[in-house]
Amino acid sequence: MELIKDTHYEGERPLFATHNLHLENVTIHTGESALKECSNIEAVNCRFEGKYPFWHNDGFVVKNCLFTEGARAALWYSNNLQMTDTLVEAPKMFREMDGIRLENVQLPYALETLWFCRNVELKNVKVDKGDYLFVHGENIRIDDFEMNGNYSFQYCKNVEIRNAVINSKDAFWNTENVTVYDSVLNGEYLGWHSRNLRLVNCKISGTQPLCYAHDLIMENCTMTEDADLAFEYSSVQATIHSPVHSVKNPRTGSITAESFGAIILDENIKAPGNCELKLWDDQTCFD
């Protein structure tokens, strides 16, 4: 592997179509596509300032690096990335990629990041300003995760999340096969139109959560007072260890909670309209 150390590049495609490089303490200044069409690249203690530095790459390691805001759209159409201990200030990172592992990574401006990516692992990752994080992603595993940003995880499939705090309006819309463990989910309109969404030991807040959901499962969850008008037109099996402020027209299934506030079952309920509402203390069923 060729060593390139203590230097800098700028302009267009300075390292285009190179292979088997170890970059150490290298700065990529303003320009475009510094490492396009490359493979087997290691970047350690490097700084990226120009646009699109890693496009159409296969096999690369990024350690203790900085992507400034100017390095927008830095990693697209690439495979097999390992990134650790890195600060990503640039938006629109990671598109159309297969094989991503991020650990100890911070993304303070993660607008439109991680779109159409497959086989993704995140550990100890913090995201801010992350509107539209993870759109159309597949096979995603996340642990120890914090995020702020709306419309996250839309149209994703086969996702497992553990130990997360997710502050996101419209999270998990139109998802399929998503499981969230031991997490806090804050935001309006959680999980609408989802299929096979499973929440285990989670705290839910925000108005009108979990509506239009198909085969929703909640195990040992809690819901805050502002989580009102829940479960409209959903099929659900839920065990909730808190009061439920209000329920509106669940379609079918069973919900067991400490208590129920408003129960809205009106002429707009959809067939079969037979969801059971039960209390923990005496299993009283509300028709």
Score class of each variant (00 low, 15 high):
Ile4Thr: 11
Glu10Phe: 10
Gly11Thr: 15
Leu15Ala: 00
Phe16Tyr: 14
Phe16Glu: 12
Thr18Met: 11
His22Gly: 01
Leu23Ala: 00
Val26Gln: 05
Val26Pro: 08
Thr30Asn: 09
Leu35Arg: 04
Cys38Arg: 01
Ser39Tyr: 12
Glu42Leu: 08
Asn45Glu: 12
Cys46Leu: 02
Glu49Leu: 13
Trp55Cys: 01
His56Arg: 14
His56Ser: 09
Asn57Leu: 10
Asp58Cys: 07
Asn64Tyr: 01
Thr68Tyr: 11
Thr68Pro: 10
Glu69Ser: 09
Glu69Ile: 15
Gly70Tyr: 12
Ala73Pro: 02
Ala74Asn: 02
Tyr77Phe: 11
Ser78Gln: 09
Ser78His: 08
Asn79Met: 09
Leu81Met: 07
Gln82Trp: 09
Asp85Met: 01
Asp85Glu: 07
Thr86Gln: 05
Val88Glu: 00
Glu89Gln: 14
Phe94Pro: 09
Asp98Lys: 12
Asp98His: 07
Gly99Asn: 04
Ile100Lys: 05
Glu103Val: 15
Val105Ile: 14
Val105Gly: 00
Leu107Ser: 00
Tyr109Asn: 14
Ala110Pro: 13
Leu111Val: 11
Leu114Val: 14
Leu122Asn: 03
Val125Gly: 04
Lys129Gly: 02
Asp131Lys: 14
Glu138Arg: 11
Ile140Pro: 11
Ile142Cys: 06
Ile142Met: 09
Asp144Thr: 15
Glu146Ile: 15
Asn148Pro: 00
Asn148Leu: 05
Gln154Ile: 15
Tyr155Thr: 14
Lys157Cys: 00
Ile161Gln: 01
Asn163His: 14
Ala164Lys: 12
Asp170Arg: 13
Thr175Met: 11
Asn177Arg: 13
Val178Gln: 04
Tyr181Lys: 10
Asp182Ala: 01
Gly187His: 07
Glu188Asp: 10
Glu188Trp: 09
Leu190Arg: 00
Leu190Val: 12
Gly191Tyr: 03
Trp192Lys: 11
Asn196Gln: 10
Asn196Asp: 12
Leu197Lys: 02
Leu199Gln: 06
Val200Pro: 03
Ser205Gln: 05
Leu210Ser: 03
Tyr212Gln: 13
Tyr212Ala: 06
Asp215Met: 13
Asp215Gln: 14
Leu216Ala: 02
Asn220Arg: 13
Thr222Asp: 01
Met223Val: 14
Glu225Met: 11
Asp228Glu: 13
Tyr233Phe: 13
Ser235Tyr: 08
Val236Phe: 09
Val236Asp: 06
Val236Cys: 09
Ile240Gln: 04
Val244Glu: 02
Ser246Asn: 05
Asn249Pro: 08
Arg251Val: 11
Thr252Met: 08
Thr256Phe: 02
Ser259His: 05
Ile264Pro: 04
Asn268Asp: 08
Ile269Pro: 05
Lys278Leu: 14
Asp282Val: 10
Thr284Gln: 13
Phe286Thr: 13
